[in-house]
Simulated assay, not measured.
Amino acid sequence: MKVQSYLSFEGRCDEAIGFYKKALGAEVVQLMRYSDAPAQAPSGNADESCSGTMPSPDKVMHAVVRIGETEVMVSDGRCSGRAEFKGVMLALTANTDAEAHQWFDALADGGQVLQPLMKTFFTSSFGMLNDRFGVAWLLVVAQPS
């Protein structure tokens, strides 16, 4: 069994993918736009703003992004413009404090720091933030076993 995260950016998926490429070195493994759907499938409308019942053809219907060893699925969803990621955090485990700081600073750009990176009783660096898209992240440095 495999459990994966699926994030709906509600119209900002291309922007989010670009951000995670830059911030975390993410790699696009698969990307399908609504225009890639067969003709008999619901296809979007010409509304570039995503305000119609179906997203515009240029929006991301489904994508898989690899971040480190993990694949995260993403899409534009219904393009409501209101992405909400309540009650869920993505956790990044760094090997070093320098790596944790690099990722934390990159993800915090345009976002909101909830807990600055700090030393705790269980690790040398721990922090939490919401990135510019509202995705919550927890960063921690792995401790040697």
Rank of each mutant, 00 (worst) to 15 (best):
V3N: 08
Q4F: 11
S5M: 09
S5W: 03
S8Y: 13
S8V: 10
F9L: 08
E10G: 10
E10Q: 13
C13M: 11
C13V: 14
D14E: 15
D14S: 14
D14Y: 10
E15C: 13
E15G: 12
A16P: 03
F19V: 04
K22H: 14
K22F: 05
K22R: 13
A23M: 04
L24W: 02
G25Y: 05
A26N: 02
E27C: 14
L31R: 13
L31Y: 12
Y34A: 09
S35W: 10
A37L: 10
P38M: 14
Q40N: 11
A41S: 10
A41C: 13
A41G: 08
G44C: 10
G44N: 05
G44T: 09
C50I: 12
T53W: 12
S56A: 15
P57F: 12
D58H: 14
M61K: 07
V64R: 10
R66L: 09
I67Y: 03
E71P: 09
M73P: 08
S75D: 07
R78Q: 14
R78W: 14
S80R: 05
S80K: 04
G81T: 05
A83V: 08
F85S: 08
G87N: 05
L90K: 04
L90N: 02
A91C: 09
L92H: 01
T93N: 02
T93E: 03
N95R: 09
T96R: 00
T96N: 02
H101C: 11
H101G: 08
Q102M: 14
W103A: 11
L107N: 02
A108M: 02
G111A: 06
L114F: 02
K119Q: 04
F122N: 02
F122W: 07
S125L: 01
G127P: 00
M128V: 03
L129V: 02
D131H: 06
D131V: 07
V135T: 09
W137M: 02
L138Y: 02
L139N: 00
L139D: 01
V141F: 01
Q143L: 01
Q143V: 01
Q143S: 07
P144T: 06
